[in-house]
Amino acid sequence: MVLFAPILDMVDSPEFFIEVIIGGLVAGVMYSLVALGFVLIFKASSVFNFSQGVLALFAALTLVGLMDGTVPILLIDSGFPLPAWAAIIVTGLVMVGLAFLIERIVLRPLVNQDPIILFMSTIGLAFVLEGFGDILWGSEVKALDVGIPTGNFLIGEIQLQVFDMWAAGIAAFMVLVLAVFFQKTRLGRALRAVADDHQAALSVGIPLRNIWIVVWAVAGFVALVAGIMWGSSSGVQFSLSLIALKALPVLILGGFTSVPGAIVGGLIIGVGEKVAEVYWGPMVNGAIENWFAYVLALVFLLFRPQGLFGDKIIERV
């Protein structure tokens, strides 16, 4: 009976329940932003990119460093801080350059190796990038303000935060752009072909190496957006790389190969964990949302092992 008391509570205070749901959706959008980067790379290369969270950190560090006018490595003020829009463009270019280097140094020597080898290489990449970011930009907390409005407003009894609404809007726009990119552009179709079968894609003349550069660059751009949103809400610091942990249950639930799956998965995980934490958490001293997200994802796995939107793999003997 005690377990059902929260349900009565939801019915008694519907406004608060709606606020919890909205809070969950907003948190879910933020998780989706991170999960998208994983999906893009997995979709195009079947590599689970362990370094996606660190990519977001590296992008945010670079952005805030440029905006502050910090000289890399020396960590002194150059006297030339860039405006936010210019810093975002330069950081985007840095992420493209990084994608080129990753393809050249990490991925190219490992073509045709097992996916687990590529996965291990991304673990190494995560540590290298984290250390490199520390050397370049230092490890102190940096405030990031790219001009996203803050504050809150009320709709009836329900309080909403302006920043959260922006996050949701930006995520929706990104999904739209990525959907168009994958479905309607020649490059997007090439990416999907590589994802389906490397050998077959190569045989019809799709340059695998270029495709990998493109997909890592796109994932780097997604990481930049995730880094901006998370960095704006918590400051840019090394714990930012841990946001990857928030994306894992989203990927399990949504599937590793689906852009819509990353979004829907994020929303389900966000809402599920917030409802669990707010209503059932107090019964067990709280802090259940982190592990509850995995429980939720695993329950879905029981019914759809490939995730909600993942591709079902059929292998013939």
Partner: peptide, 21 residues
Amino acid sequence: TLLAVDHPGQEQKATWLQIRR
């Protein structure tokens, strides 16, 4: 009221919803 925040505490929506309530 005791409200725990899990490591590292990057995301605290649930905590602050409870504070609001």
